[in-house]
């Protein structure tokens, strides 16, 4: 009895070990099915990708065609590790974080490789703007509103300084314009509240995709100004909440700064007054990725990507035809 159990245990352990070491490179078999990966519904990366390849039916919801059933990694990093583990997978992720990853292969889009340079000069088309919009303070003349207006405007101007641009870049944002000539000292001189001791709280709202960039900016900004009573709590829920958040407010709270990981729509623009300053904070690129061993594809057109995700092309061999 004991001996038998021992033998069984040994065989089991052996099998596990064998499968651990077995990361064999058996060559790429084009007759295999393409396994599809997509981010979950509600992801800004997903919206940008499917709008960019012209298949907007599935940009926001899982309304896939019959027989199409992508697996859904839950983050950029998860997407990359799933594609790294699946030789026959295809997916997409934000350009940020893709650098130095040798397990996945980034596809060029219409022949253009995704990089900071190609995004800035506009030749890489699969990109999106991170936009901001600010609250209109003109109706409220109280001292508190004046302080908040000053801090919010100072924050926007800080985004344009070289310190601000560094913070954006360190968080993976791609910058189009060069830094303004003003420095943080100029800002502190321009807005006395930054060096005072008033307690001021300004709130942010809108997209969750900008969270990393905005957090980096806030940390840099609050760390650099002398007034330590200024706080900037974040409440990111989604791009759709940015414009309503700074105009009529959400749950009775009007936010001071709204962020969107897409363009401001026309009906949203209609809600804004001329005092609701808005503009582009930075850019982000979305890249289609496949496993590093994939030899069937290296460049993607919107049409091929769309027909892969529509289920019209199901094997890698069909793609080559």
């Amino acid at each position: 009895m004991k001996k038998n159990l021992l033998v069984v245990a040994l065989i089991g352990a052996g099998m596990m070990l064998a499968s651990c070491g077995g990361n064999t490179t058996s060559g790429f078999d084009t007759s295999k099915n393409i396994s599809l990966y997509s981010r979950e519904a509600g992801s800004g990366t997903r919206e940008c990708f499917f709008e960019g390849i012209g298949y907007s039916d599935v940009a926001k919801e899982d309304l896939w065609n019959e027989g199409v059933n992508p697996a859904k990694p839950t983050s950029n990093a998860d997407m990359m590790s799933k594609i790294a583990a699946d030789e026959y997978g295809i997916g997409y992720c934000s350009l940020d974080g893709l650098e130095g990853n040798t397990d996945v292969k980034a596809l060029t889009f219409k022949g253009v490789e995704a990089s900071t340079k190609t995004v800035v000069d506009g030749s890489y088309e699969l990109n999106r703007n991170f936009n901001y919009v600010i609250r209109d303070y003109s109706a409220d003349t109280s001292a508190d509103a004046q302080n908040r207006s000053d801090v919010a405007h100072a924050f926007l101007e800080f985004m344009e300084t070289s310190e601000g641009k560094n913070a954006i870049q360190s968080a993976g944002g791609i910058l189009e314009s060069t830094a303004s000539s003003s420095t943080l000292d100029d800002l502190i001189a321009k807005y006395p509240v930054l060096s005072g001791s008033e307690t001021v709280e300004i709130r942010t709202c809108g997209s969750t995709s900008v969270e990393k960039v905005v957090t980096a900016l806030i940390d840099k900004f609050l760390g650099a100004i002398p007034n330590k009573n200024i706080t900037i709590p974040m409440n990111q829920t989604g791009s759709g909440d940015a414009v309503p958040g700074v105009t009529e407010g959400k749950n009775g709270v009007i936010s001071d700064l709204g962020f969107l990981s897409r363009e401001i729509k026309d009906d949203e623009l209609a809600l804004l007054s001329e005092n609701n300053v808005h503009g582009i904070m930075c850019k982000d690129a979305v890249v289609a990725i496949v496993n590093a061993q994939n030899t069937a594809i290296s460049d993607a057109t919107p049409e091929t990507l769309a027909s892969i995700y529509k289920g019209e092309i199901t094997t890698w061999a069909e793609l080559a035809e």
Partner: peptide, 20 residues
């Protein structure tokens, strides 16, 4: 587990999503 399942699936001649 996922890589293990991928190997098992390959042995059975089917494909998995990287073992997921």
């Amino acid at each position: 587990i996922c890589p293990m399942v991928r190997e098992i699936a390959e042995a059975f001649g089917t494909q998995t999503y990287g073992g997921s």
